[in-house]
Each structure stands twice: as C-alpha cells, then as structure tokens.
Amino acid sequence: MTTRTAAVAVQALLGDPDAVADLIARPGVIRLGHYRLLAGLHTDTFVAFSGIATDTAALDLIANWALGSIAAWQPTDVLAPSTVGVALASTIARRIGARLSLANLGPDGRPNGITSDAIRPGSRVLLVNDIITTGIGVGHLADLARSVGGHVAGVVCFASRATVNISAAINAPAIHIADLDLKAWPAANCSLCRDGQPLKDAVDLN
C-alpha cells in the first residue's frame, strides 16, 4: 500500500502502512532543499532518520516489524555504521540478545573498519542501517563483516529511496520497512546547481 505524506509517497513493505507513513511525516524527517547525498548524487529531498531515532518507542515499533524476518536468520551479532542508524541497530541488538559492533567511517563517509573485536570467526552478522540510496554503504559493511570471518546473516534498513537489490549485491537476505519515491541525480545533471541554489551535504546526526 502506498501512502502519500505532504512531501513523499511512502510504500510500506512491513508493518502498518499508516504507522509507517506517520513516522516519515514526523517534523524534521523530510527536509526540502538542495542536498548532496553520501553517494554523491544530488536531490531536493533529504530523509533525516534522526527525526525518528530519538524516539525509543518508534525504534521498538520498527524492530517489531522486522523481527519476524530477523529471527529466521538467527544472527549472533549486529554491525552498523557509526551514524544515526546506530540507534536502530542498538534497539534490534537488544531485542534479539545479540552483540553490537560499530563500523568506523572513512573520509568518504563509508565504513572502513570495526571499532571492536566482538565479531568472531563464524559469527552470524546482521547488518543494520537507516536510509539506503545505492546500497554501497551496506556493501562495505558486508565486506567488513566477512573480513573478520563473520557470515552475513541478513540486512535490515528502515527505508530505501531507490530501487536497490541489496540481497543480490551482497549475497544475503535483506529487508527494509518502506520504499520512498524520491529522485536523485548526478551533479552534472542538477538543475538546482544551474539555478545557483546553495548545496548542503546530507549529514544526519543523532
């Protein structure tokens, strides 16, 4: 079911469609302007998960929607980038009784190392992130988990703003709660740049 908020069409894939749309419609989540996403693409709409991540009840609700799939994957560890999405990762780790590890971010904003040695060879690692655009960041997380001998059990993200086949990209099952109908484009094709609109980096802090 697709539900339209004031600024974006939301298709709930898991959970109650109205409740999912309400989360997206919260103040500060949808931000309009001229933004450069981590993937380097430009957009006029930035989705700030921090508008949701400070609400523990909302995080528990998202975890509830994902737990059915997660249980079948039997993860022992959770790995997330040290960004605003760590709030969701922490909630899921607590709910399933798994160890939580965080990934350091390199100068490009992508995961490039793990802050602890909690992930042991043979661990079943659940990757968690907030909003995905290209899936490149999740791919880096998968590489990190495997580099220390972990097995990627699955991926959970809150929302995808583009059609990305994460499962195929990292050879593991993946779910996300909602699809968002949002456009992004290469900088060379950006009409907002041509119009001289100030550009902001889409940086989201909890």
Rank of each mutant, 00 (worst) to 15 (best):
P75A: 06
P75R: 05
P75C: 10
T76Q: 06
T76E: 08
T76K: 10
D77R: 15
D77L: 04
D77P: 01
D77N: 15
D77V: 04
D77K: 15
V78L: 07
V78M: 03
V78Y: 01
V78Q: 01
L79I: 11
L79T: 10
L79A: 11
A80G: 06
A80M: 04
P81L: 14
P81C: 13
P81G: 12
S82N: 14
S82A: 15
S82T: 14
S82V: 13
S82H: 15
T83F: 04
T83R: 00
T83C: 03
T83I: 13
T83P: 01
T83H: 04
V84G: 10
V84M: 12
V84D: 11
V84T: 14
G85V: 00
G85N: 05
G85Q: 11
G85P: 00
G85E: 13
G85D: 09
G85Y: 05
G85F: 02
V86R: 05
V86E: 02
V86D: 05
A87K: 08
A87M: 12
A87F: 08
L88V: 05
L88Q: 04
L88G: 07
L88S: 09
L88P: 05
A89K: 01
A89G: 09
S90H: 12
T91K: 05
T91W: 01
T91I: 11
T91F: 02
T91Y: 06
I92A: 06
I92N: 08
A93N: 13
A93F: 07
A93P: 12
R94K: 14
R94E: 11
R94H: 12
R94Y: 04
R95C: 03
R95M: 03
R95L: 05
R95F: 03
I96H: 03
I96T: 01
I96Q: 01
I96D: 02
I96K: 01
G97W: 11
G97Q: 11
G97E: 12
A98P: 07
A98Y: 04
A98C: 11
A98V: 08
R99W: 02
R99A: 12
L100I: 02
L100S: 03
L100T: 00
L100D: 06
L100V: 02
S101K: 09
S101G: 09
S101I: 08
L102D: 04
L102I: 12
A103L: 09
A103S: 14
N104Y: 14
N104Q: 12
N104L: 07
N104K: 14
